[in-house]
Deep mutational scan, measured.
Amino acid sequence: LAALHAEGPLAGLPVTRSDARVLIFNEWEERKKSEPWLRLDMSDKAIFRRYPHLR
């Protein structure tokens, strides 16, 4: 499970980098069924690119 911001401008976004990794992994797991070539990237760089508020 990932903790998400409940309200405000960040509502629905992950609270920590660990939470972001959970979301990225879950999405990758779903997408790899139809796109088996996808690589999993959970590096800090990938997290910041996707969720800049975690910098």
Score class of each variant (00 low, 15 high):
residue 14 P to E: 00
residue 28 W to P: 00
residue 16 T to M: 05
residue 42 M to D: 08
residue 24 I to A: 02
residue 2 A to G: 07
residue 36 P to C: 07
residue 23 L to P: 00
residue 17 R to L: 15
residue 7 E to V: 13
residue 1 L to M: 14
residue 26 N to S: 11
residue 40 L to R: 02
residue 5 H to E: 03
residue 55 R to V: 11
residue 42 M to Q: 07
residue 26 N to I: 14
residue 49 R to N: 13
residue 52 P to Q: 03
residue 42 M to R: 05
residue 1 L to C: 14
residue 20 A to K: 00
residue 53 H to F: 03
residue 14 P to Q: 00
residue 9 P to L: 10
residue 47 I to H: 00
residue 8 G to I: 04
residue 11 A to E: 10
residue 47 I to G: 00
residue 9 P to F: 09
residue 33 K to N: 11
residue 12 G to S: 05
residue 45 K to A: 15
residue 39 R to V: 15
residue 18 S to Q: 15
residue 10 L to A: 04
residue 23 L to A: 05
residue 19 D to Y: 04
residue 16 T to H: 08
residue 43 S to H: 03
residue 22 V to Q: 13
residue 30 E to D: 10
residue 15 V to S: 03
residue 10 L to S: 06
residue 32 K to H: 13
residue 11 A to F: 12
residue 2 A to M: 07
residue 51 Y to S: 00
residue 43 S to Y: 01
residue 22 V to H: 09
residue 47 I to R: 00
residue 50 R to A: 09
residue 38 L to D: 04
residue 35 E to H: 09
residue 33 K to A: 10
residue 43 S to T: 11
residue 17 R to V: 15
residue 44 D to R: 08
residue 32 K to N: 08
residue 27 E to M: 08
residue 31 R to E: 04
residue 14 P to K: 01
residue 44 D to K: 08
residue 32 K to I: 14
residue 27 E to Y: 05
residue 36 P to T: 06
residue 3 A to Y: 13
residue 24 I to Y: 03
residue 15 V to P: 02
residue 36 P to Y: 06
residue 36 P to S: 06
residue 12 G to K: 06
residue 6 A to N: 12
residue 45 K to W: 12
residue 18 S to Y: 15
residue 26 N to V: 11
residue 16 T to W: 03
residue 37 W to S: 11
residue 3 A to D: 10
residue 39 R to A: 12
residue 16 T to D: 07
residue 27 E to P: 00
residue 10 L to H: 10
residue 4 L to M: 09
residue 33 K to P: 07
residue 54 L to V: 01
residue 50 R to C: 07
residue 55 R to N: 10
residue 12 G to Q: 05
residue 25 F to M: 10
residue 45 K to L: 12
residue 11 A to W: 09
residue 12 G to P: 03
residue 32 K to Q: 09
residue 9 P to G: 05
residue 12 G to E: 04
residue 38 L to S: 08
residue 49 R to E: 14
residue 11 A to T: 12
residue 9 P to K: 09
residue 33 K to S: 10
residue 25 F to Q: 07
residue 48 F to A: 08
residue 30 E to A: 13
residue 26 N to M: 14
residue 29 E to T: 15
residue 14 P to A: 01
residue 41 D to Q: 04
residue 52 P to F: 02
residue 26 N to A: 14
residue 7 E to A: 13
residue 34 S to H: 13
residue 45 K to S: 14
residue 35 E to V: 05
residue 30 E to Q: 14
residue 46 A to H: 10
residue 42 M to L: 15
residue 5 H to R: 03
residue 46 A to E: 15
residue 29 E to G: 08
residue 17 R to C: 14
residue 23 L to Q: 05
residue 13 L to G: 02
residue 55 R to M: 12
residue 6 A to V: 14
residue 32 K to T: 09
residue 24 I to D: 00
residue 1 L to F: 13
residue 42 M to P: 02
residue 54 L to D: 00
residue 8 G to H: 05
residue 31 R to L: 09
residue 27 E to R: 04
residue 34 S to E: 12
residue 34 S to N: 13
residue 37 W to V: 05
residue 12 G to T: 04
residue 16 T to P: 00
residue 6 A to D: 10
residue 43 S to G: 07
residue 8 G to T: 05
residue 46 A to P: 01
residue 23 L to W: 03
residue 24 I to H: 01
residue 26 N to R: 15
residue 22 V to T: 12
residue 20 A to N: 01
residue 28 W to C: 02
residue 46 A to D: 03
residue 48 F to R: 05
residue 37 W to P: 03
residue 53 H to M: 01
residue 31 R to A: 09
residue 54 L to H: 00
residue 49 R to F: 12
residue 47 I to K: 00
residue 46 A to M: 09
residue 7 E to L: 09
residue 41 D to P: 01
residue 55 R to F: 13
residue 14 P to H: 01
residue 17 R to Q: 10
residue 11 A to V: 11
residue 36 P to D: 04
residue 11 A to R: 13
residue 13 L to E: 04
residue 26 N to W: 12
residue 24 I to N: 00
residue 28 W to N: 01
residue 41 D to W: 05
residue 5 H to N: 06
residue 54 L to A: 00
residue 34 S to V: 13
residue 50 R to L: 11
residue 51 Y to G: 00
residue 36 P to I: 06
residue 11 A to Q: 13
residue 4 L to W: 02
residue 49 R to V: 11
residue 1 L to W: 10
residue 47 I to T: 02
residue 28 W to G: 01
residue 33 K to H: 11
residue 16 T to K: 07
residue 27 E to D: 12
residue 52 P to I: 02
residue 13 L to T: 03
residue 20 A to S: 01
residue 25 F to H: 08
residue 3 A to T: 14
residue 50 R to Q: 08
residue 43 S to E: 03
residue 49 R to H: 13
residue 14 P to D: 01
residue 44 D to Y: 09
residue 40 L to P: 06
residue 52 P to D: 02
residue 9 P to I: 08
residue 29 E to C: 15
residue 11 A to D: 06
residue 34 S to A: 12
residue 3 A to W: 13
residue 15 V to Y: 06
residue 37 W to T: 11
residue 2 A to L: 13
residue 26 N to H: 14
residue 23 L to D: 02
residue 9 P to R: 07
residue 9 P to S: 10
residue 45 K to Y: 12
residue 38 L to N: 06
residue 4 L to H: 05
residue 50 R to D: 02
residue 8 G to K: 08
residue 46 A to L: 08
residue 50 R to Y: 06
residue 54 L to G: 00
residue 26 N to G: 08
residue 13 L to M: 10
residue 34 S to G: 11
residue 28 W to M: 02
residue 27 E to I: 07
residue 34 S to K: 14
residue 30 E to T: 11
residue 12 G to F: 05
residue 15 V to E: 04
residue 4 L to D: 04
residue 36 P to H: 08
